[in-house]
Design a protein around this nucleic acid. Sequence first.
DNA 1: GTGGTCTAGACCACA
DNA 2: GTGGTCTAGACCACA
Lengths: 126, 126, 126, 126
Amino acid sequence: MAIEFDNNLPIYLQIMNYLKKEIIMGRLKAGDKIPSVRELASELQINPNTVQRTFQELERELIVETRRGLGRYVTSEESKIMEIKKEMASELLDRFIQGMQELGFTSNDIITIVSDTITDVDAKKG
Amino acid sequence: MAIEFDNNLPIYLQIMNYLKKEIIMGRLKAGDKIPSVRELASELQINPNTVQRTFQELERELIVETRRGLGRYVTSEESKIMEIKKEMASELLDRFIQGMQELGFTSNDIITIVSDTITDVDAKKG
Amino acid sequence: MAIEFDNNLPIYLQIMNYLKKEIIMGRLKAGDKIPSVRELASELQINPNTVQRTFQELERELIVETRRGLGRYVTSEESKIMEIKKEMASELLDRFIQGMQELGFTSNDIITIVSDTITDVDAKKG
Amino acid sequence: MAIEFDNNLPIYLQIMNYLKKEIIMGRLKAGDKIPSVRELASELQINPNTVQRTFQELERELIVETRRGLGRYVTSEESKIMEIKKEMASELLDRFIQGMQELGFTSNDIITIVSDTITDVDAKKG
DNA sequence: GTGGTCTAGACCACA
DNA sequence: GTGGTCTAGACCACA
């Protein structure tokens, strides 16, 4: 696992997003044990306290739960996972559409650009 | 003018984006004088040092230029303005498409969602 | 048996309180054999080390005694049991009254609130 | 200001409770600036990070708000303050009444004990 | 000066 | 071994 950190966003937020995506994509499944603080810290080459902060926030969002002495686990509520997927998609969408409109693109512009870009991306991947 | 600041991103970056959009939308035109540090600071309710930093960065990106004793001006190179518009749009697009793909959405999903959302947004605005 | 553990207090303290209450309520009587470390650990779904610690502390408080090779027993001193009942009640009271006073409630407020709440609780239980 | 710390509860929770009480009692008023992390840390002789944690949690509960570079302030919503007063009182009450019932005290016992103790306490204070 | 984040590392409760 | 808390202290954005 390797995350390219963006210097303008707190690391703990970037790891949160990363883990949420892993859960949404099913690479970490509902009920799975997640890496320990120490494991993830050494894997990502960051301080354990930063990972601790990440987990704390994920727990507060009910995405992760701690079992004392045993470690941390992805929530077993599938509905919670669907919920965060919707949340994240919706935030991406809003940010994108609002951003494009603030640059003066019309609705038609936006749809065209997205279609063109995606077709392009797909073509490159073959 | 009121910017809703996002606590997780440096304010100077947020103001930079704001000013770039103003320029792209033509509310600040090529060659226009831009507000002074003090003016903008009091308008946005932030510290002059922060505005200073913003202008510094915009200058580094050749979007703004200082004329000694006269103040700061939007670059008069129209092509520069087009360039940053493309840059910003491209960044928005990449971030959006990559983000959606990381959540497991297919190309078709993405196009559909964008069309639907935009139609929706337009409908609401009447 | 199921104890809802409060994440902010050591488990061994929570089990100590639980067992003290069982003794005070006479569900564990003076002189009774208490469950073994293993039994209680599996019943409460916790680690035997934690139960061990609990018993150690109860022994220190003379509420439980070990008879070599025979197991652990509730003290046979009835007076000891009365004593811990008084202690626990007194601690509950102090914590409650002091807490309410620190929130600005007067003596009259406190008495009224307790009466009202208890009447309420009783009514609900039928 | 001096808090006697109880070793069985995290310090940050104890400071949270302390500050909530100060706000409820009006010694810290709605909209007031609260001490800075460094100030409070040196006053309470604890590490700034522990105070930081305290403030983070109070912010999450909307009791305190940060103004970038200026410091932290008690929420200016009076209703929020009433709300936490009710919450804290309710928790004290529940914990007390449930605790007493678990020790075998009847409703009448409880009311009598509270009245007697309060009368006592008042007598001592003169 | 003020808060936010991060690193380094210790100690404890629990498994 | 695992998480929770705490201390010590650095660096940065912002005022």
